[in-house]
């Protein structure tokens, strides 16, 4: 019994058939509990007021925006090395979800930033790198839809994901470098305020536990959606195969 057995589409389909439903239930329960707890049963922050509660959407979506890209990178590598079609399709399926997560993170961040910082958008390193991440998602998805042959598309997008990852990390640190020259003090404070990691250390348990629940919900939701979308990609591939066979006959 090894992980690679699931590279067989039939095996993958039967196993995930049993997994999608529970994953959606888990996501629903965690999200509902985490968000309701977070929104209604936590005290307001003494300085930020009720706006602090957007953290329950912002932090998990930002976390998943990055994790989705990492998952795409791993899936792309598996496709390039071991040529498992399911892996390539999973990477394709994850891209729009990751893009949506990035959009949610940027949007909720803007909604939070307006009353707190007094601006919808600031060219802060962290905000800027998310915008760049969004552009990478756009490019990746555009390349998938532009190439007709599915195997060629999988190869090309995998290489793009590989090179893109390196340059995304480069941009992440380059952007830090770029804005420190402009206003160092405020950017450090702001970066610390927005990050998931820093809030985890500073936020008291009252806020942290529902946040954890909501993060678990987002992870489960991501898994459920990726499985569902990969399953429909596999089915789409089968339909294409059947149609080609009919046309040949």
């Amino acid at each position: 019994m090894s992980l690679w057995e699931y590279a067989n589409p039939r095996k993958f389909m039967t196993t995930t058939d049993r997994m999608v439903g529970p994953a959606f239930w888990l996501a629903g329960i965690c999200l509902l509990a985490g968000l309701i707890w977070g929104f209604f049963f936590t005290p307001n922050d003494f300085r930020q007021g009720a706006t602090v509660k957007i953290i329950y959407l912002h932090v998990p979506s930002a976390m998943m925006a990055i994790n989705a890209w990492v998952m795409m990178l791993v899936a792309s590598l598996i496709w390039l090395v071991r040529r498992h079609h399911v892996s390539a399709l999973a990477a394709k399926a994850a891209a729009p979800i990751g893009m949506t997560m990035t959009l949610i993170a940027i949007f909720t961040g803007a909604v939070w930033g307006q009353p707190t910082w007094g601006t919808w958008w600031e060219w802060d390193p962290r905000l800027t790198s998310f915008l760049i991440l969004l552009l990478f998602y756009f490019g990746y998805m555009a390349l998938w839809s532009a190439v007709d042959d599915p195997d060629t598309a999988a190869d090309l997008t995998s290489y793009l994901c590989l090179v893109g990852s390196i340059f995304a990390i480069l941009s992440r640190y380059a952007v830090n470098f770029w804005n420190q020259g402009l206003h160092q003090g405020s950017s450090v404070f702001r970066a610390a305020a927005v990050t998931g990691t820093d809030t985890e250390e500073k936020v008291s348990n009252v806020f942290f536990l529902p946040l954890l629940l909501s993060m678990a919900g987002f992870v489960a939701l991501f898994i459920a959606l990726v499985l569902l979308r990969t399953r429909s990609e596999v089915r789409l591939r089968r339909i294409h195969a059947l149609e080609t066979k009919e046309r040949m006959a």
Binding site: G139, A142, A174
Partner: peptide, 25 residues
């Protein structure tokens, strides 16, 4: 990446410009 595509021009910009960010910075 885009050599085989018929209308690759716009896609080429979308793919390459994010990669140019660190160099530009």
């Amino acid at each position: 990446l885009t050599v085989g595509l018929k209308r690759g021009g716009l896609l080429l910009s979308l793919l390459v410009l994010p990669l140019y960010v660190p160099t530009l910075i």
